[in-house]
Write a protein that binds this DNA or RNA. Structure first.
Lengths: 342, 342
DNA sequence: GTGAAAGCGCTAACAC
DNA sequence: GTGTTAGCGCTTTCAC
């Protein structure tokens, strides 16, 4: 890394001159025009990038805020990040949580391991991690993160946890279908490069309950790398697959909102009436499920609650570190609509 | 701010002992159990929060990445943040952009001013700002940000800009309506706490073209603080408002995807046929507009292109600072569907 | 106009 | 086991 000293040496001036020029306060020290240009050119040529850690450290007037790493995969729940930022803004504005700075560490599902060095280097005052796949959980288990760490999924005793009970959600959907007299049901889910543990848990909960309740259940899954350009297309394909099943189920639990939009489109196109011919429950928050015709019964991942809880827990942990690991299991509300009345 | 020295003094040990204990390397220095506990307790009681700037500075083995501030308002395009992170991940993985760290500075529309101190303190190697309201633009104009700064909206000559031509989009919609023989049209937009400049620009472009083309145009807008629980409800209300208009327009440009979902729901409910009775073009990316019945013609905010360009520009700026301000105006593609065929 | 030097809070090598 | 000390890269005061 090139520092102001390197530049100073190259140009033949002192480090402070470089500092003045590069932080735009040249006139304050009345550095000569030519010298300024020399320094600027050298900095550019040498690829100088100011070291913010050093800058912050020496800027004593500014209070330093805790820095939290938010590991994030774009494959996650797409609206969560936005909700999270909104909640942070609201809570700090209302004085409900101390101020913090969130830095996003992008990371694909299953590739949390790549963040290993950053996470273990104690670079952040806190860490928020969605442990989305088995590999991620494995990695976290084998890694000792010093900073207070809040998991969004994946239960590891020594870390804090803010999550929902996916298995129970799956089971509840099965119970509703059973109560409605269905004998043959299905669960539909898109393909994941690395199986998402949350999907797998809901799936397992659903299938277990089906077995207990003596309902036939088929699993309809996309193929990783299948010929779908997006989740809606995948939903269309999966709906086709479901309708080709020998005994077409009379109720289906669709685990992804966009997949649902595609599948519903196919169902409607084939004249399948919902809920009369087919009851549908969707796991997802996409607002359009509300205005769809028929309107769609959903189970919601409670993004706002999760975000609020996450921020609260993190804020508390910063103030009293070393607290006993917290486990907050939040409610996943059912919103009953036409596609599957209560 | 309490430092390890404060703790050391309070407990009566050396700072290095405190450092060892608090960063979990107590056994490495073989600090006695009791002393560890003493230090831990004191840190907790005194509300110690490690200063990450100091930590990073002294951890010499780790390379420091440029830190970019991403000012963000949750009222923005909701999926953009996610797209942005995905794009960042993809581009750095593919070696198309140097690695960077993005820190999110939450900030409501029109309240950019509150970030003034952070932005002008040279705390970040780069800044990305959506200047969404007139107040924001005013603030940016009057502020001198040293770090390379990329605007997502709002044209300020000394900063870089990656954006779309909203005025032209509005004009193009009007031209399409005119070509289709409409004489009476409408533009519909939700309420904003602070008027969004992008909405205002599309609005202006639309109205100007309407005037030029001699079409009657009404503006249907939500009231700030109106009785809508969400954008879909607001769309329903606005649709009602539109239908009460003396001369109901035969084509409408809806500036928000969720508002559109609400409005379309009302139109469908009233038996209004699209496109026969009413042509609809929506500004928005919500996927459900594709599967809506009728499917909806949209103009898309090109999130992926914007994100890619933004990252590219920022990466280049880091390597050669002081470059001439860049202006990248990206295309907003029309996707023609049933609600308004080409 | 310019450079030397102190110090921001922390880590880690080293001496005791 | 524990304390001393030398930086990390930068800003800023102060002497020249």
């Amino acid at each position: 890394m090139v520092s102001i000293y390197d530049i100073a040496k190259a140009v033949g001036v002192s480090a402070s001159a470089v500092s003045y020029v590069l932080s735009g306060r040249a006139e304050k020290a009345r550095i000569s025009r030519e010298k300024q240009q020399l320094i600027l050119d050298a900095a550019k040529k040498m690829g100088y990038i100011p070291n913010m850690a050093a800058r912050k450290l020496s800027l004593r007037n500014m209070t330093h805020l805790p820095e939290i790493a938010l590991c994030w995969s774009p494959e996650q729940h797409p609206g969560f990040l936005n909700t999270f930022i909104g909640m942070l803004q609201d809570m700090t504005a209302a004085g409900q949580a101390r101020e913090m700075r969130f830095t996003i560490l992008p990371c694909r599902n299953g590739e949390l391991e790549k963040l290993g060095p950053v996470l273990t280097a104690n670079y952040y005052n806190g860490v928020i991690v969605p442990a989305v796949s088995d590999d991620d959980i494995e990695f976290l288990k084998s890694t000792e993160i010093q900073a207070p760490t809040v998991l969004l999924f994946g239960d590891i005793p020594r870390y804090h946890l803010v999550t929902v009970d996916n298995r129970r959600t799956g089971a509840e959907v099965a119970e509703i279908f059973h109560r409605h007299g269905h004998r043959s049901v299905a669960v539909m889910q898109p393909a994941y490069r690395q199986m998402s543990v949350t999907v797998a848990q809901r799936n397992a909960g659903f299938l277990e309950s089906c077995e207990k309740l003596k309902m036939d259940a088929v699993v309809i899954t996309g193929e990783p790398g299948g010929p779908y350009s997006n989740r809606i297309e995948e939903g269309r394909a999966l709906a086709g697959k479901m309708l080709e099943t020998g005994k077409v189920p009379t109720a289906v639990f669709i685990q992804h909102d966009l997949v649902a939009l595609g599948a519903l489109d196919v169902f409607c196109g084939k004249g399948i009436r919902m809920p009369e011919d087919l009851e549908v429950i969707v796991y997802g928050n996409n607002e359009s499920l509300e205005v769809h015709s028929p309107s769609v019964t959903t189970v919601q991942y409670p993004t706002e609650d999760i975000a609020r809880e996450c921020i609260t827990v993190m804020a508390e942990l910063l103030d009293k570190p070393g607290a006993e690991p917290v486990r907050r299991i939040l409610e996943t509300p059912f919103v009953f609509r036409e596609s599957c009345p209560p």
